[in-house]
Simulated assay, not measured.
Amino acid sequence: MKLTFHVPFAGRVHLFLVRDWHAILLRAWSMRLMYLAFAFQVFEGLLPYIDEGSFGIPHGLFTFLTMTILIGAAWARVTPQPQTLAPPEKTDAN
């Protein structure tokens, strides 16, 4: 799939998605870590509404965890993940 954008001062930019982009969104470790970071940020935002004392969790802990997870996601993005593009194993349900 080809996506074309017009970027000021750069002209047209073409982005090409890989064929199995949906499989990458589900299986790549970089994406899994980004989903986890998103969940931590949502939980940190909702925590004051659930409990005023935030269950004793120090302020900024989820921010630190999110930053750590995003560093791991960036690392996972640049390391080879051959199992990400491998077709799922078919199992006999019988």
Rank of each mutant, 00 (worst) to 15 (best):
M1E: 05
K2V: 14
K2N: 10
L3H: 13
L3S: 15
L3V: 15
T4L: 03
F5Q: 06
H6T: 04
A10V: 13
G11P: 02
R12N: 07
R12C: 03
V13R: 11
V13Q: 07
H14A: 06
H14P: 00
V18F: 03
R19N: 07
D20Q: 00
A23S: 06
A23N: 02
A23M: 02
L26C: 05
L26D: 06
A28F: 01
W29S: 11
S30Y: 04
Y35M: 09
L36H: 02
L36N: 02
Q41T: 03
Q41L: 09
Q41K: 12
E44A: 15
L46G: 15
P48S: 03
Y49L: 15
D51G: 08
D51C: 13
G53D: 11
F55Y: 14
G56T: 07
G56S: 05
P58H: 06
L61V: 06
F62Y: 14
F64M: 05
L65V: 10
L65I: 04
T66R: 12
M67C: 12
M67R: 14
M67S: 14
I71P: 04
I71K: 10
I71Y: 09
I71E: 02
I71C: 05
A74Q: 05
A74M: 11
A74H: 05
W75T: 12
W75H: 07
R77D: 06
R77T: 11
V78Q: 14
Q81C: 09
Q83E: 15
Q83D: 11
Q83S: 13
Q83A: 14
L85Q: 00
L85P: 00
A86W: 13
A86T: 14
A86M: 14
P88D: 09
P88R: 10
E89G: 13
K90P: 06
N94C: 00
